[in-house]
Design a protein around this nucleic acid. Structure first.
Lengths: 400, 400
DNA sequence: ATCTGGAGGTCAAAGGTCGT
DNA sequence: CACGACCTTTGACCTCCAGA
């Protein structure tokens, strides 16, 4: 009996490509990517995992003794979609990847390759509970407990923050149980620095993050810290408020000039700098309240913002890890929404709605960094050094 | 000649992925994952999606009437990496997955299957035409023709651009047919101003846009013009280049300091301002090439970026119109992807991938505005007044 | 001996070139 | 530039064979 269920027609160009991509996603076994172009490897060829194209290309170039020159600077990007654009760089990358000319002659000596150690990435069955989401929710709880703990100290430098082991998150439920004294005086500067400090702990608690070089960790954190700072400020403000940002101890930032910003450009100019708190309220808090962003959606969004493969200056290795992590997170969000909303169209619509928040979060973050640098320059205020380090380092690794 | 008498029948299902139109080939399965081991399926074999390995394995077992026994409990896990470890369980899984022995006898007959390629399969091309997409594609064609037309003048002020009726787009095919003199000298400043001018015409050609107040039109255009400028620069660069931005007359901006930007923050500082062209290449052009952004996806993305309800300072009326328009655009994109990719998960994944580009486009746009203001302040260069008006007005209506 | 995966081979289809 | 005949390259699939 034949199952005609799936017509599965069509081959339109990238359909197939996308299929492969998704397949990779679900069977992330090491060695299945072409070391040259990142396409699906067809196996080990000339000593390295490679796709058919790169395999054949390498063979031809060697056998026919061909030489090429690069029309650019010899630094062309070779990946699946662009591998044919520069032969010189493609061949160079073959060599760099470790393709071995010797294998081409009549070398018949089979090097016994790996055959073991493939036990870790087993079956990934469909389950109602998404462990990734569970993990993020747990991290969120720990985040909250650290934030209000009197034991959680504010870091003074990023270097210190990242080198400090990752005790804090592990012990969030024990050592950091003691709450801050409600009468302890705080201010915005304190909370910014504390949130950033706890976010550093949050970041360190990810396995993927811990696998990055220290420099990559630094860059990624600097790149995304303010985005998550403003998003956290907005999300953690009690739901009943939509005109202020409220910190855990009750400290409030009000939107007293909100209307000005929203619809009166002239007044905006008159007032000079628009308070960042207004940006947080109008461009993050109000929209996420309006769309009723849930806790699960929030933790996923937060992590998706953090794992930003577009962060500049990362090593290739880090970029790949981060891109893979983001894919997993996006996938979890997608599945979660699909499961929640049943109607796939509706799920997709909300998916977009959530992701489109990122643009604004990043803009508000940029605005906040700028503002902090400005007020410090003019000595209007003395922000916390940890906050300033992140804020000032940002342009070193990014355009804006 | 060679021509191995037998195997040429070709079912070769797989054809190169590249152009989408004029594909009349029969469907190559799109079968995704091997039902037996989860590896990439090479097609439908013996009635189920299967990889080459499981296909061949099944054939051998059936044709040779082999039997195996399991050393364990008959419940071995069969996946890509372990499919060879237990033949009994692999064969059992073939059967459970639905592999059909009956198909094997047919296989022997080696019937020619060329003929059916055109007969019934052709009907798969039923494409639901989305009028919104058709409209955007038409606008894109008009955009192109205006861009290279010698008759399309560069605007001098935004006021003039918006007041100038909307003749240009209506007459794009007639009055503006005359191409620019190839020998006409251009520069980056010229193309920025020209693209912005044509984008103003593009904007005016939307019915929704024409319903906005003049002030809202102005704000929206200023808010989004640079985003669409940089996206257009990148997208319209011929596909073969990934290290430069190319304008219609061949003028090139190169990524000659690409490595600097991508991975060397120190050198980046030393060089001072990173050329905006590098930002466009690294953060927009390369990613959209890599993901193979199609023309349809591009026109939708462009319009989605334009209709940004998060644009500040808009009247409520405008915000609502714009939000509604964006929803329609998002909906079209979603439905288009769903139709193209069949698998809703794939569609959703690509949907996210496309939308996430917006963050970078907006960042590069911000960077470009900043850079222009800087070079003008220091009188390093004299950008076109229209470009500067947009660039300088931006902060009046937004935070950044 | 049998089975597997990687080697080289094949060729339709894509891209590139050049004379008109 | 546009066309189109003709040449080159690509890569999915094929068969062969060494080694386990």
């Amino acid at each position: 009996m034949i199952t005609f269920g799936e017509p599965s027609p069509d081959t339109s160009s990238y359909t197939r490509q996308k299929h492969k991509d998704s397949i990779k996603k679900f069977t992330p076994v090491s060695g299945e990517l072409c070391c040259v172009c990142g396409d699906t490897a067809s196996g080990i060829h000339y000593s390295v995992a490679a796709c058919n194209g790169c395999k054949t290309f390498f063979r031809r170039v060697v056998l026919e003794n061909r030489t090429y020159s690069c029309k650019n600077n010899g630094d062309c990007i070779i990946d699946k979609s662009m591998r044919c654009s520069c032969r010189h760089c493609r061949y160079k990358k073959c060599i760099v990847a470790g393709m071995d000319r010797a294998e081409l002659s009549m070398e018949r000596r089979r090097k016994r390759k790996k055959m073991n150690g493939m036990a870790d990435e087993d079956i990934q069955e469909i389950e109602v509970k998404d462990p990734l989401i569970e993990l993020l929710l747990d991290k969120e709880t720990r985040y909250q407990s650290l934030l209000i703990s009197s034991e959680m100290k504010i870091h003074t430098t990023l270097h210190e923050a990242l080198n400090n082991g990752q005790k804090a998150f592990d012990e969030a439920y024990t050592k950091f149980a003691k709450r801050m004294d409600p009468k302890y005086p705080t201010n915005f500067s304190f909370w910014r620095a504390k949130i950033l400090s706890v976010l550093a702990e949050w970041a360190k608690s990810f396995e993927v993050f811990s696998r990055l070089d220290r420099d990559d960790q630094k860059r990624l954190f600097i790149h995304t810290a303010f985005s998550n700072l403003v998003l956290a400020e907005a999300f953690h403000t009690p739901e009943k408020y939509t005109d202020r940002v409220v910190f855990p101890d009750g400290l409030c930032g009000f939107r007293n000039v909100a209307q000005t910003v929203a619809s009166d450009a002239v007044a905006n100019r008159t007032f000079g700098l628009t308070p960042t708190v207004v940006a947080v309220i109008n461009d993050i808090l109000v929209p996420i309240r309006r769309m009723r962003l849930t806790r699960i959606e929030y933790v996923l969004l937060q992590a998706i913002i953090f794992y930003d493969p577009d962060c500049l200056s990362l090593t290739n290795h880090a970029t790949q890890l981060i891109a893979a992590k983001r894919r997993r997170l996006l996938d979890s969000l997608q599945r979660y929404l699909r499961q929640q909303l049943k109607d796939p169209i509706e799920a997709s619509t909300r998916y977009a709605e959530i992701l489109l928040r990122i643009c604004n979060v990043q803009k508000v973050a940029a605005f906040k960094r700028e503002t902090l640098c400005t007020i410090e320059t003019f000595e209007l205020m003395q922000p916390h050094p940890f906050t300033m380090e992140i804020s000032r380092s940002y342009p070193d690794f990014s355009y804006f």
